[in-house]
């Protein structure tokens, strides 16, 4: 999609959102709440109109697809069900809308492990079961593209592990998989590629390994019992320091050997100096720092 722009009243929901999702990869679509993830997905599906820009699936707009579920499978809101209809019948009307047979419904039910509950009223399903039903719906047309909005929401640990493996297998089969989440830890072990968004635009669009390396570069973790002393010494030498734990400090702007020399010279005790390995959480925080709309002030930062 390119240059998506959309306004809700005074708020600019999408401000030139552009990225692409490649087949064979799980692409994590992450950003704080209100960053425009769900809006982008609705725009892709032709549910919301944009003032500018285009979203294409395999080169065609969604509204031009004849049997859309054969092109894109999507799950926007797992709770969007009639509570009195059974899970199987929910899939059945969707299948009929695409000219698919009931046999395919039973196949996808089996695929997501919902066979035992399929004939019960969907109103009685747990959120995790609804997510599975939503995934089944997304898979009905066996589409090459899968798009899921917050699929980990409400899942128990078993469900999360299942979902991760399932998404990986979908990508391994050559599908393009786009998964949104506001929790980094959820996509950590699943995504190959990340599109990080904030305030309606893309902040970063890169491989997971690449992003971690970029944020880790030049950062050193220091373990010391004298956190305040160490921080003031290093800050005076021109480094950017931040306390990241009770006895750990993240330092950037100085090489590790220089840090050791400085600390020794000032007689600051320390137990460990190591190259920092950023987690996706760090990457995300670093990238969305300016983009977060509602953020509590974090006073632990000391910089010169």
């Amino acid at each position: 999609m390119t240059g998506l722009r959309k306004r809700y009243g005074a708020t600019l929901a999408l401000d030139g959102m552009s990225f692409s999702v490649r087949p064979g990869l799980v692409t994590g679509f992450v950003g704080p709440n209100g960053a425009g993830k769900s809006t982008t997905m609705r725009v892709i599906l032709g549910l919301d109109a944009v003032e500018e820009g285009t979203a294409l699936i395999g080169g065609r707009p969604y509204l031009g697809l004849r049997r859309p579920l054969n092109h894109v499978g999507s799950l926007l809101d797992a709770a969007a069900l009639h509570p009195g209809r059974s899970g199987r019948n929910h899939l059945l009307w969707l299948a009929h809308a695409q000219g698919l047979a009931a046999r395919r419904v039973d196949e996808v039910i089996e695929l997501v492990g919902l066979t035992s509950a399929a004939r019960r009223r969907a109103g009685g399903y747990s959120l995790g079961m609804r997510q599975r039903l939503g995934i089944a719906a997304a898979l009905l047309g066996d589409p090459p593209n899968i798009m899921l909005d917050e699929p980990f929401n409400g899942m128990d640990p078993d469900g999360i592990i299942w979902m991760r493996g399932f998404l990986r297998s979908l990508a391994a089969a050559g599908r393009a998989v786009l998964v949104s989440s506001h929790l980094m830890s959820e996509v950590q072990d699943t995504a190959d590629h990340l599109v990080v968004v904030g305030r309606g635009k893309v902040i970063a669009d890169a491989g997971v390994a690449e992003l971690i390396a970029a944020v880790s570069a030049g950062r050193v973790t220091l373990r010391t019992t004298a956190v305040t002393h160490a921080m003031s010494v290093l800050a005076q030498a021109g480094a950017t320091v931040a306390a990241i734990g009770r006895d750990t400090v993240a330092v950037s702007g100085l090489p590790a050997d220089r840090i050791v020399t400085l600390l020794n010279a000032s007689a600051v005790p320390f137990s460990e100096v190591s190259a920092h390995r950023a987690t996706l959480e760090d990457v995300y925080l670093e990238l969305t720092r300016e983009a977060v709309e509602f953020r509590a002030a974090t006073p632990s930062e000391v910089s010169r």
């Binding site: 609705r42 032709g46 579920l69 969007a80 069900l81 719906a137």
Partner: peptide, 15 residues
């Protein structure tokens, strides 16, 4: 369908 949000599923299936 509007109350449950299912209208989006309907319009996704038949744009």
């Amino acid at each position: 369908e509007y109350a449950s949000g299912m209208i989006r599923t309907s319009l996704t299936a038949v744009p």
